[in-house]
Amino acid sequence: MAEAVIEVEGLRKQYDNIVAVDGIDFSVRRGQVFSLLGPNGAGKTTTVEMLECLRPPSAGRVSILGLDISQGRRIKDRIGVLPQGFNAFALLTVRENVEYFAGMFDAAVDVDELLRWVKLDGRQNELFKNLSGGMKQRVGIATSLVNDPEIVFLDEPTTGLDPSARRDVWRMIGNLRDQGKTVFLTTHYMEEAEMLSDYICIMNHGRIICRGTPREIILEHGGSPVAFVRGAGEKGLRLLQKAFPDAALVEDDLKVTVHNGRRVSEILNLLDAGEAHYDEIVIKKSTLEDVFLRLTGEELMKEGEEDEE
């Protein structure tokens, strides 16, 4: 197993009477895509800002690349950060913006190469203010890579982007992992975390309520798959009721939970044996979204809402 590049123990942050982060522990291994997941106000951004050496913790220990976070300057040289809702200088071009942030580090990468990597080499002379949201985010990702960081922090990198721009960002995160970089992702999009992450911590009210690989989390907390037999009607229900007592009719569709080692093929066999008619059968697996709902009873933020934390 690769070494831990981020180690967090008993991390806590309190503002006056509000406890934003309430004693959390986790570690991130080199080369992982690690996601901190949770609704707005869960304490994700506060946690990330402590890891980025922007806010001092009220208590606990954080070590980044073997350095204590009191050594902010040395850490900053080796990490890259895309803040939430990133904006660059509106009146500078793409290239000038990337050069600006490259100029802040003693050792910086080749700007041309970086612009090619984020596919902005063709637009490098456009002013930042004239770019689309997706392209602005690509500039942001480029500025977080200027120092060839070992860890890249991406705070809500796809919030407010259209689906195609969002897929671009996902592709880049995949490429970063392929290059062996550690990616620390903060998101409230379950689908995104499930698809990209090697390891996930779910936060709510300042605590980590669940952790593991996406598969582990879904298996452990996600519940059983549900089969929807569309158009099976009353006849279908009668055929299945004995073997699947919790089968239920939703209008003309049959909803059957497939648990206790039962198989979907059993449902099909019973229906076929009874010569029941049905249009199609759809199996819905549990997602992280369901997990979150089950764990907290709360819904995650709906798309398009403001995401201030």
Binding site: K76, I79, P83, N87, F89, F101, M104
Partner: peptide, 13 residues
């Protein structure tokens, strides 16, 4: 308001 300072803070500037 544009978060530029926040970004600058993450650099050695």
């Amino acid at each position: 308001s544009q978060g530029l300072f926040r970004k600058m803070m993450t650099t050695p500037l």
